[in-house]
């Protein structure tokens, strides 16, 4: 470096009143916009370098990615499964119906008459009468026990009136009042509100969602610990570099940066694996779910991972990785001070 250039610079340094402020050392040489530009380019370089370092140990990195991926996929799968069950339940919720099983002694004519009477009521929107013969035919077709029925002397099935409540009576409480009223009718042997099992289903779904949340929290904490431990090793491997950087005036943020990116890549990679696992899993069980839905004469289609849920998993993984790195790096970096 030419002497006069150095001299001019030193003179400038001499002429400057020293204030001991943090900007003093840097501002005289690097403009603000230059510093900002190089700040971003440093982020780019550091993130790329951190990623290359992971690829340099592919087996170890893959193992970490898999562990994080599985930890993220488990609650993800549970959540999507519950989501599907809930959708299934909602599809049936509108069809709140009361089944009135009539006394065997009530003949078809009386049954039809009762249906007509019920149809007139303001709180009932639809009534459908299934005679004993029809019930038998339907049972024979659907159940597959047709041959058993042939051995019976008489038709064991009662006639049924399916009552669909209207308006306010759709509300579970009102529906129950209506149910009690209908149950009191002399022709009715048994009255069943179809809603009851739905309420139980939703209660179970809520329980399941809480369990999924608890599982997600536990496994999330596990991911933080995994990242923390991985970070400890990454820091040990770069101990010399950290010392030198601290000696030549690197801030803690500067020292921390590559490790935060390492954590981010671990988390993001884990998220990618989780998404891949879930997609593969849903393809695998999707066909059998379709068969099942067909058997139930349902047009239900298994909902896989939505784009939003996939993005959430990726972002969640990245955030967990970054946070895990943040938590551990701060602690380990304090231990590394130049001696």
């Amino acid at each position: 470096m030419p002497d006069d250039a150095l001299r001019a610079d030193v003179r400038r340094a001499d002429g400057r009143r020293v204030e001991g402020r943090r900007s003093a050392a840097t501002s005289r040489r690097v403009s603000r916009s230059d510093r900002l530009a190089s700040y971003w380019s440093h982020h780019r370089e550091v993130s790329a370098d951190s990623f290359r370092r992971l690829l340099r140990h592919p087996i170890a990195s893959l193992a970490t990615w898999l562990v994080i991926g599985i930890a993220l996929a488990l609650p993800g799968a549970l959540y999507v499964a519950l989501d599907n069950l809930e959708k299934l339940g909602r599809g049936w919720e509108g069809a709140t119906r009361i089944s009135l099983f009539l006394d065997l002694a009530v003949d078809d004519a009386r049954g039809r008459a009762l249906s007509e009477k019920l149809r007139q009521r303001a709180d009932i929107s639809a009534v459908s009468f299934i005679s004993r013969t029809e019930a038998l035919a339907e049972f024979r077709q659907v159940s597959g026990f047709g041959e058993v029925l042939d051995h019976l002397d008489a038709n064991p099935l009662p006639a049924v009136i399916l009552v669909t409540p209207r308006g306010e009576a759709l509300d579970p409480e009102q529906a129950r009042t209506l149910l009690d009223e209908l149950r009191a009718l002399p022709e009715v042997e048994r009255a069943v509100l179809d809603l009851e099992w739905l309420q139980r289903l939703f209660a179970m779904l809520e329980l399941g969602q809480r369990m999924a949340l608890a599982l997600a929290l536990l496994l999330g904490a596990g991911v933080l610990l995994i990242i923390g431990n991985t970070m400890r090793m990454a820091i040990a491997a770069r101990r010399d570099e950290i010392l030198v950087v601290k000696l030549v005036g690197g801030t803690n943020a500067f020292v921390r940066r590559p490790f935060l990116y390492t954590g981010l890549w671990y988390g993001l990679g884990g998220g990618v694996i989780a998404v891949a696992l879930l997609l593969a899993g849903f393809v695998w069980i999707g066909s059998s779910a379709a068969v099942l839905a067909d058997l139930y004469q349902s047009d239900f289609a298994l909902g896989g991972l939505s784009v939003g849920q996939g993005a959430l998993l990726l972002a969640g993984g990245a955030l967990l990785g970054w946070a895990g790195a943040w938590l551990s790096v701060g602690r380990y970096l304090r231990e590394i001070e130049p001696q």
Binding site: T26, V30, D34, S38, H42, V244
Partner: peptide, 24 residues
């Protein structure tokens, strides 16, 4: 010396400038 042995001479010398935020 405290040099970093996984980097070239250039990168070793450039380290303080990277920290200062110099353009390439």
């Amino acid at each position: 010396h405290q040099l970093l042995f996984d980097r070239t001479v250039f990168d070793n010398v450039a380290l303080p400038l990277v920290i200062h935020g110099y353009q390439p």
